[in-house]
Design a protein around this nucleic acid. Structure first.
Lengths: 298, 298
DNA sequence: GGCCGCTCATACCTGTGGAGTATAAGTCTG
DNA sequence: CAGACTTATACTCCACAGGTATGAGCGGCC
């Protein structure tokens, strides 16, 4: 009756990931028998087996597989709460903000300055984050707010768009389309388009300038803008990039052309869903006050 | 180092709600001293006090207040995981679906029928739910999916719009506007408009036919459609209602008129964010297959 | 085929720490 | 100032998380 305990979830996830009680126990810094017992107890409490195990191998049941997602989610929330609380508990409470490297870090600095000028503002720390890592940092509590670009994975986040800029096509310098001064999305259909590493279907569709669900042209997988431009320069693909990226990366082997009907590049501020602490609220206010409804100038 | 435990959060929330260690302990079915100790320990682990207490009264610190929101959220997720897991563990796994009473329960029955015809479908239970309670039921795990109407509180939910119908103005029979055969939103500006009990600003703005943030006319608070129509019939307010509500409620003291530019009434299917279990996926598929892009006929 | 190596389960023991009881100590009230 | 309320402290206790030793099932291998 007493409800799930976080410890049980941590144990279960470890076993589910290792699919081996001994290794999982080692990872948890405990012995194997109590771990086996704890899992049995969890199974009794839930009312169904999580694993089918013989002495040779352990596999998740269907029920175990769905419960694994649930358990991971609950633990993610729990660690995020823990991290944010520990940060808020410090003698000098610190708001951690993060942004994608590049343009947004300039925006972020300015938002942070505005925030610090507000009454009741606290210390702000700007955390560096890898490409596309911002949303995860907010979700797992390593950061309180993030500037990130659409379309990002919104699950578990509240957000507010701040600024946008048009996207342009990056074409190999000798591509036939460079003869036109302006393109439309449809002109790129059929061209290979790079896929961002780890991008979801919806994100990839956005970068291709298409609606999700359509067949998407295959293309090389890239991890950052310079890789992307390299791939374009080599003639292996075409791509849609924010105009500011184009302006900061003039290359003789890449030609940029406006795309009239491409959805703009949007930068939004995001924070943990529903967690509008005073500090976060003030920071979001500072950001929207500075940028809302203004077009991003490169 | 070992991370937050659910038990600690339950204790903390109980004390924060009672603001009294003895009563909280009683509610938790335990004695007061261990509860005091547990809270002290939690405070040590987090690194700051949650309460300021003298022997006469207990009050939340600022830190405690923000942590209360966090703790409630984490516990909500945890209980939801628990409830869904226990349901999935049953010998006959059962998907629980809910909807607002009225039109949607008809839709829900049909979606459930379609779902049951799919290969691999499980048992479906249709849960009754109070007005505006559907989203909460999904969030706290009492239901797996819900049919609800926009704009609902999206936090923690994924959703897909299913059907829509136009909204019409409900006017007192002797109101001057009844002389016109069709209205526009602006015609209602300045009229008192009922406020749904518990509605957020954004929701209220939708029911007023206005953008959020504008000044909203004050009006009586109502809890269900019949209350709302009563208030309109008495001449105390005007309101926007879905056309089907108008058709099912002919009243001599209320006159309905189309409103050309009012945002339509939208019914969506919602499920726990990111938790796309096979059963939920199939149910959402059944719903979109039946209704997507069709206009709701009363 | 019998041995070995690997797994998880069972049995039993141990110690930590969560929870109980009794009581002190503080503060407001009449 | 006594009494009614609080929460905190000091202890005792025992449940249960966790450890150790060992059994038991299943393959692979010489």
């Amino acid at each position: 009756m007493s409800g799930l305990e976080a410890r049980e979830l941590r144990y279960f996830v470890a076993v589910a990931e290792e699919l081996n009680f001994s290794r999982a126990a080692e990872r948890l810094g405990m012995a194997q028998p109590p771990l086996s017992r704890a899992i049995r107890q969890l199974e009794r409490r839930l009312g169904a087996d999580l694993f089918t195990r013989d002495t040779r191998q352990v596999v998740l049941t269907d029920f175990g597989a769905t419960f694994l997602e649930e358990a991971r989610h609950a633990l993610e929330v729990l660690t995020a709460v823990d991290r944010r609380a520990r940060r808020a508990a410090q003698v000098t409470p610190t708001l951690v903000a993060t942004a994608k490297p590049g343009i947004a870090s300039g925006m972020l600095r300015r938002v942070a300055e505005t925030f610090r000028a507000l009454p009741g503002a606290c210390r702000v720390e700007i955390a560096v984050s890898g490409y596309r890592e911002q949303a995860d940092m907010v979700r797992d509590g390593r950061a309180d707010v993030a500037l990130l670009s659409l379309p990002y994975e919104r699950r578990g986040l509240d957000s507010e768009p701040l600024a946008s800029e048009p996207r342009v096509a990056a074409l190999p310098a000798d591509h036939p389309l460079t003869r036109r001064s302006e393109l439309r999305r449809a002109d790129l259909y059929g061209e290979p388009i790079p896929r961002w590493a780890g991008a979801s279907e919806a994100e990839h569709a956005y970068w291709c300038g298409r609606e999700p669900g359509n067949d998407l042209p295959p293309g090389p997988v890239v991890g950052d803008p310079s890789q992307l431009l390299e791939v374009v320069g080599l003639g292996q693909a075409v791509a849609l990039v924010p105009r500011s990226v184009a302006e900061r990366n003039p290359r003789s082997d890449v030609t940029y052309r406006p795309v009239a009907d491409a959805a703009p590049y949007v930068i939004a501020i995001a924070w943990p869903a529903g967690r509008r602490s005073p500090a976060i609220a003030r920071f979001v206010f500072a950001a929207t006050d500075l940028y809302l409804d203004r077009t991003l100038v490169s």
